[in-house]
Amino acid sequence: MSDVSSLEAEVAKLIVRTLTLKVDPAQIQPEEPLFGDGLGLDSIDALELSLAISQFYGHQIRSDDPDTVATFASLRSLCQSIEKHRTK
């Protein structure tokens, strides 16, 4: 298991809380896919999640950004994107 940064732990909690998932945030592996096989999120979840991220970190994820699909690949990639663009 790879190390989990504090931001990753925080965002894992945000994901679980926003989407009311029945998983323990600590169980979300940073490299595990968020969509499909991994955590099993869908595109409506992605929308909710992006709204929550915009609210808490001031980072608006946009569909026309070529990196968007990569951003949603895993908890780690999502946190890297937040780290880079956050305004709060």
Binding site: L47, S50, V69
Partner: peptide, 10 residues
Amino acid sequence: SPNSMLRVKE
């Protein structure tokens, strides 16, 4: 796609 619904929102 993960960004399908973002496009809807936008």
